[in-house]
């Protein structure tokens, strides 16, 4: 089954209440942050906190990612040592400009995994936050089988472009298109950036509708209250669910009767269409629109 990552909730590693409670909001992925949100004086303490949180039972049934500090900082390797041992599912690279950034991180992770005998491969998420990163996105997306997705980091990106973020988001058009294409071509996921104004609910809704329309799998969030809004927008429509049921049913019927070709309304239904329908139903379940037994 495809893993949904509509919502990736950023949790500052120094904010204990958030570290303890983030799971309550049921984001698809909890993303502990050891980088920008943590003051220099608290890096050590936050690292230990996240290390222990990762192992806590409350995070057993939820996917965990950790944004570590860059490997060329004094904190990067220490962060990695702690969170790989803690059992993070995903490492989010802080700033990915080149293929080498990913490969360096990959080999650092491999080394630790070997040391501790971890067999489950830690996945990677590359954050594209610069013009260089956007230009290299196609190569970056294809460079490692650990990469589960690439994400746009808009704040640093607009600074690099010498512009600023607007409500309309026109300044992000090129980056979004490039990141999405690179991800889809490499068959990995694509994630949009954090919406900057936590108070602007309507602006948030508009942006989520926009990026969902573009094809993004999800978005990073800083405000837990945005999760349910985002999930609602990502939920399939009744019409889509109905269509998906019919496709899945037709496929099952064809298989049962040994028919080589599935057809619906006179059109051939091939494997990608069936996969799409199954995805829609899973999404409907994740959105709470249908129960699992309905399938």
């Amino acid at each position: 089954m495809m893993k949904f990552r509509r919502s990736m909730l950023f949790v500052p590693g120094a904010n204990t209440a958030m570290v303890c409670n983030a799971f309550v909001y049921k984001p698809d992925t909890v993303m502990f942050d050891l980088e920008d949100s943590v003051a220099l004086s608290e890096k050590d303490s936050a690292r230990l906190m996240v290390y222990h949180a990762l192992q806590h039972f409350t995070y057993k049934d939820i996917e965990t990612a950790v944004r570590v500090n860059p490997l060329d900082s004094v904190f990067g390797h220490l962060d990695l040592q702690a969170v790989i041992r803690g059992g993070a599912d995903i490492i989010r690279l802080p700033k990915t400009d080149t293929v080498d950034d990913v490969l360096d991180m990959q080999s650092a992770i491999e080394k630790i995994e070997k040391e501790i005998g971890r067999t489950k491969k830690t996945k990677l998420l590359a954050a594209i936050e610069s013009a260089e990163g956007v230009v290299n996105a196609v190569q970056i997306a294809r460079c490692s089988d650990r990469l589960m997705g690439i994400a746009l980091g808009a704040e640093d990106y607009v600074r690099d472009l010498r512009t600023q973020r607007t409500k309309e988001g026109t300044e992000l058009t090129a980056a979004r298109a490039q990141i999405l294409l690179a991800a889809r071509a490499a068959k990995i996921q694509a994630f949009d950036s954090v919406f900057p104004d936590v108070r602007d609910k309507e602006g948030f809704i508009r942006e989520v509708e926009h990026v969902r329309g573009l094809g993004f799998d999800g978005k990073s969030l800083v405000n837990p209250n945005q999760i349910s809004i985002l999930h609602d927008i990502y939920a399939p429509s009744e019409k889509e669910i109905d269509w998906a049921y019919e496709v899945v049913e037709a496929a099952a019927h064809a298989e049962k009767n040994g028919l080589g070709v599935v057809s619906l309304d006179g059109k051939m239904v091939d494997a990608p269409i069936i996969a799409r329908a199954e995805f829609t139903l899973e999404l409907a379940i994740a959105s709470g629109l249908i129960g699992e037994e309905d399938e």
Binding site: F10, P12, N15, M18, S37, A39, V198, V222, N223, P224
Partner: peptide, 8 residues
């Protein structure tokens, strides 16, 4: 959450 809050 208050991502806009800073302490100095």
């Amino acid at each position: 959450m208050n991502s806009t809050i800073s302490v100095s």
